[in-house]
Amino acid sequence: MAKADFVTSIVVILLGLGALVQSLRMPRFEHLQVDPYTVPGIVPAILGAVLSVMGAILLVRSILRGGWQIKATGFGGLIFNPATGRLAVGLALTLGYAAGLVGRLPYWLATAVFVFLFVTVYEWSATDNSRRRVMSLATALVLAAVVAVVVTMVFQLVFLVRLP
């Protein structure tokens, strides 16, 4: 964790300082004769400062624990890691659905496509038995249809939400 702390502490410090600088540049509305204690920048400036200080403490601590050292294997290992691959697949599926399909396709169709793809992508690679794959495809199809219909119905008819 020392290395993660090293990286995140720098992010936190930069974020805190950024917020501090932005806050100090916020208007003070002197020309409107407002109470100086109500200006918008006070609290974000304090929060930015506190965050930078906490980030600095974390930075010092992570350096003491050797988090600043960069190992040669670190980067390559991160990219060609099976966990990273699984994360990429997961992100592609979920973001593709929520940020891509929803709103472009009719809601029920988008949902059915997503559920079908999600189940199929993960279950296809989990086995090479073709019989199992067919079963999994069939399940995915049924699940997709049921989820699409039930969610659409419940939110549209019971919760009266106008679907995207």
Partner: peptide
């Protein structure tokens, strides 16, 4: 998980949206 998680994600998406019927809230959720 391959079957449960897509359902939960569908609920997360529609849940975020239905609070105020805003697509922007889906982006915040993501």
């Amino acid at each position: 998980r391959e079957r449960l998680m897509p359902i939960i994600f569908v609920l997360c998406t529609i849940g975020a949206f239905s609070i105020a019927s805003r697509v922007f809230d889906i982006w915040v959720m993501l």
